[in-house]
């Protein structure tokens, strides 16, 4: 897989920033005045207790929700009302908390679907599978095969994903996101419901994606051990507000984080 094209951003530059983002549904405030940034090439974790607004934050980043106040800046451009498809085209890919694959389709087809934004030939050409469309398909198939190799899912290439165990479905979903060759990868609880071995595999894949392709990763995760090992920086949300931001070690020492996770001691 090639490194994604696009404006040259040096590792360490801010690639995506949330500025004073608030999000409300009627009277309910999911996010209140949250600001943080994601630097190029880092693994950024978003953690917090249930209902802290983590998924809402991801949804704002990839345009699924639009912040009621504040804005998202992606690659230096403010995106007040970005649609999900624009985000995808702009290089933001994501996986979902509950797997959102095409269950009846094979692993291979799901991954090919992930390439659809990269296909230039129109529907009719592709239906004909002839000439330039065929050449294009071969090229995309090659990219997809590299992802299959990368994620070690050769054995399930032709298996309908609905038949796969949960851990593998998660891996396929990661594969589909990678098929877009994203600059920023948003992972919503990539390890939820996995056993220890599956978690270790997934950790290795996430690290490899980050190292090998230089993909910037923002992930939501509950397993603290995983978060502390994987991420470069952690932002902590509670009741829709940011309560801490820093390296795993810093965050772990933070009084408010400890209180949020372990409960307040009422003396």
């Amino acid at each position: 897989m090639r490194a994604p094209d696009g404006p040259l951003i040096v590792k360490g530059d801010v690639i995506l920033a949330a500025e004073n983002v608030s999000l409300g549904f009627g009277g309910v405030k999911a996010l209140t005045d949250v600001s943080f940034d994601i630097q190029k090439g880092e693994i950024r974790a978003i953690i917090g207790p249930n209902g802290a607004g983590k998924t809402s934050m991801l949804n704002c980043i990839n345009g699924f929700y639009h912040p009621t106040e504040g804005s998202i800046t992606f690659k230096g451009q403010r995106r007040p009302r970005m649609r999900p498809s624009e985000a995808a085209r702009g290089g933001i890919a994501r996986t979902f908390q509950n797997v959102a694959l095409f269950k009846g389709m094979t692993t291979l087809d799901n991954l090919m679907a992930g390439r659809s934004l990269k296909m230039s030939r129109g529907f009719v050409w592709q239906a004909l599978r002839f000439g330039p469309a065929m050449r294009e398909e071969v090229e995309h198939r090659k990219a997809v095969e590299e992802i299959i190799d990368f994620l070690e899912i050769q054995a399930i290439r032709r298996t309908p994903v609905g038949k796969l165990p949960y851990g593998l479905q998660k891996r396929v979903e990661l594969g589909r996101a990678l098929a877009m060759e994203p600059e920023v990868l948003l992972l919503d609880e990539p390890m939820a419901g996995m056993n220890l071995e599956e978690k270790e595999d997934m950790c290795r894949f996430i690290l490899d994606v980050n190292q090998q392709f230089g993909t910037t990763i923002a992930l939501i995760e509950h397993d603290m051990g995983v978060v502390m090992d994987l991420s470069d920086r952690v932002v902590v949300l509670e009741y829709g507000r940011k309560i801490a931001d820093g390296t795993p070690a810093e965050v772990k020492r933070d009084e408010r984080v400890i209180a949020a996770y372990l409960g307040q001691a009422h003396a």
Binding site: R141, K142, E145, E146, I148, D149, Q154, R157
Partner: peptide, 11 residues
């Protein structure tokens, strides 16, 4: 004559 084959990248 083919001596070795290895299935790689699906081929």
């Amino acid at each position: 004559r083919p001596a070795f084959r290895h299935k790689d990248l699906g081929i």
